[in-house]
Design a protein around this nucleic acid. Structure first.
Lengths: 234, 234
DNA sequence: CGTAGCCTTGAAGGTGATCAATGTTTGTGG
DNA sequence: CCACAAACATTGATCACCTTCAAGGCTACG
């Protein structure tokens, strides 16, 4: 596995993450990154597998990582998309009952993560109130998103997709695109539905002009007002 | 609204909650309860409404409180059942983006909660690392449960119900009953399905001997091994 | 050049939703 | 204490939405 030490440039990236915004002092920061190694992930490479020992946690530097579990039927169910600045597994470090990772982490496109040993968490993170508050906020936001999905569980699929897309939009005015490019499969796995259903629903969204296909490579353009109107409808 | 001060007996209950287990020193504890008032809730009485100002949080002393939102269609969706020792809204106190309660809290049967002003949180809770870790754990466990539900979202309703029941069982060996008595409506609201569907599914569970109706008042008995077997099946 | 992953389409089928009606229980106020 | 309303439970009939299965296509990559 390609591991490397934290470069000066990576540190620059790190300090601009919201997570460390309120932490002052360079050496205070460096303590948080103690024994950290940068790991390069290829598309679809697995960072963590369900059941792996809880000996480290990670921070996304670049790219994106999806957190997922397997349903009883064997399908993937995606719980969260971790973008740069997001933590993976940190919430587990002080969970004494838990002995292994409850979910897997898989790279979406080439990505880079900072891997930190549990020891660093115990020594530098756990006692740091500022950081603990930030972790709390991340955890809260993650829960909020899952709850948001749950609320929509009784809505027709088209609305559920619209809601999901809306959450992953770049701060756009009228027309925008997603922060991460999601495959139909990933949308399906996020919502716990069949791919075919997603495809059919998105075909309709396109017919209604909510999304627009640009190039063949390009991720589709999304018309935000139309999307919002679709959600308000009914 | 019937408010009263914290009695000596209530304090005894409080100190035995896991939340305060690692907090030593009586005066340290009393600081955490500063300006706390006990509120008695009647069955179905509302403690918090969506959109209410975030000026206080609560701790369940007795009974049970369900946390819920309204789906776009207007149905209730239950996010969590708060039992004695569980916090309500505490996770929001240091969430600066959030300005009002995102969900409602409603008593299930006569209940008692300790209501604490936000000020107490800022002054005594926020700076207390032990407590912050405990809150983290509560938050984590709550998220874990929601994720657990999400995993099951592709399973047939009978299994989803079985999974839900399993989570709310008393530590029982072979036959057990629920910690809280849930109406069919509440099960439906938890899973985001129609009541009628729950009724039909539970009728089958009873036919299969997984649950057993005792008295007409009594909550039904659940045969744990059968329940687990049902979940493993397929 | 072959495989793996994703996308697409169509046909058939099932699970749960909806609607409507009725029963039961509980609590409320006259 | 009775009457009535509100919340919950139940049943049956019908229907829509989503799943499943099968088959085929496209693109990337070793």
């Amino acid at each position: 596995m390609p591991y490397s030490l934290l470069s000066q440039q990576d540190v620059e990236t790190l300090v601009h993450f919201d997570l460390f915004k309120d932490t002052v002092g360079r050496d205070e920061l460096m303590k948080l990154f103690a024994d950290g190694k940068v790991r390069e992930l290829k598309h679809r490479e697995i960072l963590i597998s369900v059941g792996a020992p809880l000996d480290s946690f990670a921070l996304v530097l670049d790219g994106a990582v999806k957190l997922l579990k397997h349903s009883p039927k064997g399908e993937d169910i995606i719980m969260h998309f971790a973008l740069p600045g997001d933590l993976i597994g940190a919430l587990l470090m002080n969970q004494t009952q838990q002995k292994s990772y409850p979910l897997s982490a898989k790279a979406m496109g080439p990505s880079r993560v900072l891997v930190l040993p549990k020891k660093t968490f115990s020594q530098a993170w756990l006692g740091n109130l500022t950081i603990m508050h930030k972790i709390n906020q991340l955890l809260y936001r993650r829960m909020h998103n899952i709850q948001d999905d749950k609320i929509m569980s009784t809505s027709p699929l088209k609305k559920r997709i619209a809601n999901l897309l809306l959450r992953h939009l770049n701060e756009g005015k009228t027309a925008s695109n997603l922060k991460i490019s999601l495959t139909r499969q990933e949308i399906a796995d996020s919502l716990g539905v069949a791919v075919e259903s997603v495809i059919r629903a998105m075909r309709e969204l396109q017919a209604e002009g909510v999304t627009e296909k640009l190039g063949d490579k390009q991720p589709e353009l999304i018309h935000v007002p139309k999307l919002v109107k679709l959600l308000d409808l009914n």
